Each structure stands twice: as C-alpha cells, then as structure tokens.
Computed example of a mutant assay.
Amino acid sequence: MTATTATASAQTRLRGILRLDAFACAGFGLLLAAGAPLADRFLGLDPAWAVPFGVYLLGCAVALGLVAGYPDLVRGQVIGVVANNVLAAAAMAALPFTGLVELTLAGYALMLGGAALVAVFAIAEEAGLKRLEA
C-alpha cells in the first residue's frame, strides 16, 4: 500500500466516523428539540434544557457534516470536533449530578450513555486524525 492509498484510506475511515457522529447528533438533537414534552415526561429534562441542547446538537450535526464533506479533511477542524466532543462528554456526564435537572432513571441512563458515546467518538476521531497524519 502506498502512502497516498494509506492517506486516502485513513481519510475515508475518519469521514465515516465524522458522519456517524453527525447522524447521532442529528437524531438526539431532533429527539430533544422536537420532542421536548416527551423528553420532559420520560427523561425529566425540562424543555428549557431540552430545546437549547437539541438545537446545539443539530448545529453540531451540520458542522460535522461540513467537516466530513471537505475534499481534504482539515486538521484544525477535526481537532475542533475532538475538543467539542471532549467538553460535551464531560458536561453530559456531570449534568445529572449538579442538581440543575431532576432526571428520571431513563434520563440518567440517556445522559450517561450519551456521554460515553460522545467520548467514544472523540477517541475514534483523535485516532483517525493520528492515522491521517502518519
């Protein structure tokens, strides 16, 4: 395998991870923004939290789609994605324990599971960036 083939393969894999991250953000964002009353009832996440969080996630989905769609992935943009994911994972993991929201058991599970998923995306995207630079 030549260096060009390896780079193309690394870009393809990283693009796939970025797109998967975008789809996850879009799905969760739609759930929270459009389904705020359901999020309140089943998760205990008040619409005052659910709607802005959902809109933020929809914005993330658009940004991730744009980053993944560039002809050549831009290192700084991918670093920004990783940094955003690290901060989002930390916030999602901490929020249930701050007393700012009164989550149901399902809400705790969704927030902590979401934090874990976002952390996995951050790790995979960082690894993909390292493969790209190798």
Rank of each mutant, 00 (worst) to 15 (best):
T4F: 09
T7K: 08
T7M: 09
T7P: 01
T7W: 12
A8D: 10
A8Y: 02
S9G: 12
Q11S: 15
I17H: 04
L18R: 05
R19H: 06
A22Q: 04
F23D: 15
F23N: 13
C25M: 08
C25W: 02
C25H: 07
A26D: 12
G27A: 08
G27E: 11
G29K: 00
L30C: 15
L32V: 06
A33G: 11
A34F: 04
L38K: 06
A39C: 15
D40Q: 15
G44Q: 04
P52Y: 00
P52R: 08
G54W: 00
V55R: 14
Y56D: 12
L58E: 14
L58D: 14
L58P: 06
G59K: 11
G59W: 05
A61M: 04
L64P: 12
G65M: 09
G65S: 11
L66R: 14
V67M: 01
A68E: 14
Y70P: 00
Y70W: 11
P71H: 02
P71R: 08
V74A: 15
Q77F: 14
G80H: 07
V82Y: 02
N84D: 07
N84S: 08
N85Q: 12
N85D: 15
V86R: 05
L87S: 15
A88M: 07
A89S: 14
A90I: 07
A90K: 02
A91R: 03
A94L: 14
A94H: 06
L105V: 14
G107A: 15
A109I: 12
L110M: 15
V118N: 06
A119W: 00
A122L: 13
E125T: 05
E125W: 01
E125F: 02
E126G: 01
E126D: 07
A127M: 08
K130C: 10
K130N: 05
R131F: 12
L132D: 00
